[in-house]
Amino acid sequence: MTTTSIPIPKLMDSRIRSSKANWLLVSHGNRNMFFFNPISNDIIELPDLQEEYENICVWTFSCPPDSSSSACFVVGFDYLGNPPDVCIIKVGETNWKFHNLNNPADRYKCFFLTGCNSPIFFKNNIVYVLGDKGNLGILTINENSIPSWKFYGKSFLRRRLNSIQYVYTAEDVDNEGMLAVFLSHHEGKVEVWRYKMNGEVLEREKITSLDNKTMFVSSVGSCLKTCIAPGLENKIYFSMFHNNKGVFYCLVNRKYYSFDYLRIKAYSSPNIFNLVRPTSCIWIESEND
């Protein structure tokens, strides 16, 4: 484990809101938003949000803001909205657009966000958002018109919902869907569910294997990667620590291990009782990886 100090005054008291590739969406308070690249130290400013938008606290963005191949959209969601109100800007524009998308006639009358703060932005300008009952909201962004919500899936049983403490989501590129990792309140039991749309039907299933993939998860951005070395498959790397050592979960053995797991006295446990979870922690994914 290494510690790096980056002497950039603008980062003082800032908060990471979302991450993609090697870019972070960062804020001061709830209104001042900007992008930061921790590799190049580049900063891209965004217009300040208006005061009435301060309830917007769940964020994502479509692609690196310096991308030359496509426009970068930044999207924020009102945590308390039902369904969530949406705030959108395209990088380069000077004003945010706020949309109240509540439709009383919608047959899905109850969709709130979960404690998961990392919606998944797909390439075709749709965003997967996990609801607080395990259902799925899909926001379609139309550049020249109002965005629109659609909602899919039945609620999980109350007993399952009551056991969930943390939720992490990542794009599942090969299956054209999303993976959701659920951690239970006490022991930290791990469940992985795949969400995939088949036409207008949500296919939602619990899975026990990532095949030849590895997951890296945090509350502001997660990714699913193909293994580059034997022994990395079916493992979920969390933003948690034991004695300053990073921790991963093995889906095969159903245990947590520290990164030095090959040592004789390395940490292993079926629960998270002795683990530390930082307030803010991210994985940085290079565009070339």
Rank of each mutant, 00 (worst) to 15 (best):
104 P>H: 06
196 K>Y: 02
146 I>W: 02
175 N>T: 00
155 S>C: 14
51 E>I: 03
90 K>C: 10
281 C>W: 05
170 A>M: 12
116 C>T: 08
37 N>T: 08
151 F>H: 14
64 P>Q: 08
147 P>W: 03
51 E>F: 13
166 Y>L: 04
50 Q>H: 08
59 W>D: 05
271 N>I: 11
122 F>V: 12
193 W>F: 15
165 Q>I: 01
52 E>F: 13
179 L>F: 14
36 F>N: 05
55 N>M: 00
33 M>C: 11
137 G>C: 11
63 C>L: 04
234 N>H: 03
142 N>M: 00
28 H>F: 06
102 N>V: 13
186 H>I: 05
190 V>I: 15
210 L>R: 02
238 F>G: 03
72 C>T: 14
248 F>T: 00
279 T>M: 03
281 C>Q: 01
108 Y>Q: 13
208 T>E: 12
234 N>R: 04
54 E>P: 01
287 E>P: 11
46 L>C: 09
23 W>H: 07
214 T>M: 09
232 L>Y: 01
97 K>N: 10
179 L>C: 14
87 C>G: 01
157 L>Q: 07
98 F>W: 03
270 P>W: 02
164 I>Y: 08
86 V>I: 13
152 Y>G: 00
216 F>Q: 00
169 T>Y: 04
160 R>E: 04
112 F>V: 09
260 D>M: 09
83 P>V: 13
256 Y>F: 13
234 N>D: 10
161 L>Y: 09
215 M>G: 07
155 S>M: 12
37 N>H: 14
287 E>D: 15
175 N>Y: 13
184 S>K: 12
189 K>G: 12
155 S>I: 02
24 L>V: 00
80 L>W: 12
288 N>A: 15
104 P>M: 13
264 I>R: 12
225 K>P: 00
174 D>T: 07
117 N>D: 12
179 L>E: 09
234 N>E: 04
57 C>L: 08
159 R>K: 07
269 S>A: 10
88 I>N: 06
158 R>E: 15
26 V>N: 11
164 I>H: 05
28 H>I: 04
202 L>W: 15
83 P>Y: 09
142 N>W: 05
184 S>F: 00
114 T>V: 07
175 N>P: 04
280 S>R: 07
106 D>C: 15
6 I>N: 03
153 G>R: 05
278 P>N: 08
26 V>P: 01
187 E>M: 01
12 M>K: 04
284 I>K: 11
93 E>S: 11
173 V>H: 11
138 I>C: 12
229 A>H: 04
55 N>H: 00
227 C>L: 03
252 V>N: 12
172 D>H: 10
263 R>P: 00
43 I>H: 15
22 N>K: 12
121 F>Q: 06
273 F>K: 12
272 I>S: 05
26 V>D: 03
175 N>M: 08
185 H>V: 10
176 E>V: 02
56 I>H: 05
8 I>H: 07
119 P>M: 02
123 K>Q: 13
212 N>V: 05
187 E>R: 08
187 E>F: 08
109 K>S: 14
15 R>E: 04
93 E>R: 00
250 C>Y: 01
274 N>G: 06
2 T>G: 07
274 N>Y: 10
222 S>F: 02
26 V>S: 13
29 G>N: 10
215 M>A: 08
51 E>L: 03
117 N>C: 14
130 L>I: 15
282 I>C: 13
103 N>Y: 09
41 N>E: 04
246 G>R: 00
204 R>Y: 03
34 F>Q: 12
